[in-house]
């Protein structure tokens, strides 16, 4: 098997299998969480629940992250805030607004969208990778984080880091032939897709549930932050 056939395998059957495991696995996780149920709400609401949800998304997800000084996370721990923020920003810019990734979405969804120029995505990705290294260093040195980090946490870091670093090297045509890194990039993505439903990386989905429920609680009590 040469790199070209390996690439066909990682882009073809393996990717399909991983994608199906990912989709099925996330459906499983979602159903499990939803069917845990929640207690009926008998107290009269003081404020609008919907307004609470809207406000919490606006402030917590769309505005406050970009206005650092209002966030307690920033004041308490700027490294986590900056590195964590940059990591997520870079990651999602590349996955959604990078041209090659948009073409993946287009092939799966049937429609595409405008993308960012390569240099912009490139710098954001580089920042993302640097942020991940900083976060790893922090996790290795902070006594509390060290205490709560097990094999799954280190694996989370590694399996997210590998697609990012192989993708970055591949885009710059560095060190190896293009198809070698393309294959490794696809392989690492395939492994990551299988790993996500089994791991806390699934927070990309549950984050929205927890934020919605928080918003409902805030709105109900009329204490929207």
């Amino acid at each position: 098997m040469n790199w070209t056939t390996f690439l066909q395998f990682t882009r073809g059957p393996l990717f399909q299998a991983s994608l199906l495991i990912f989709v099925g696995g996330m459906a499983y996780r979602l159903v499990r969480v939803v069917l845990l149920g929640w207690k009926g709400d008998k107290a009269p609401a003081k404020g609008s629940k919907l307004a609470g949800v809207v406000k919490t998304y606006l402030k917590g997800f769309l505005i406050f992250p970009f206005v650092p000084w209002v966030k307690r996370t920033f004041n308490r721990n700027p490294i986590i805030y900056l590195a964590g923020g940059l990591f997520h920003l870079g990651l999602f810019s590349a996955i959604i607004l990078g041209t090659p990734h948009m073409l993946v979405w287009k092939s799966l969804l049937g429609f595409g969208w405008p993308t960012l120029p390569l240099p912009i995505v490139d710098w954001l990705s580089a920042a993302s990778i640097a942020a991940m290294i900083a976060l790893l260093f922090y996790r290795r040195t902070n006594p509390v984080l060290k205490l709560i980090s097990g094999p799954a946490e280190w694996l989370n870091w590694l399996l997210v880091f590998l697609p990012m670093v192989t993708g970055y090297i591949m885009t710059h045509h560095l060190f190896f032939q293009y198809e070698v890194l393309f294959s490794l990039h696809m392989l690492s993505v395939d492994v990551l897709l299988i790993w996500i439903p089994l791991s806390r990386i699934s927070h990309f989905m549950f984050y929205f549930f927890s934020r919605t429920i928080h918003g409902v609680e805030f709105g109900k009590r009329g204490v929207t932050p």
Binding site: R11, G12, F15, Q16, L19, P100, L103, V104, S107, L108
Partner: peptide, 10 residues
């Protein structure tokens, strides 16, 4: 089809 796209669409 863009080269980055998967080979087949499930």
């Amino acid at each position: 089809q863009g080269q980055s796209a998967p080979l087949n669409r499930p």
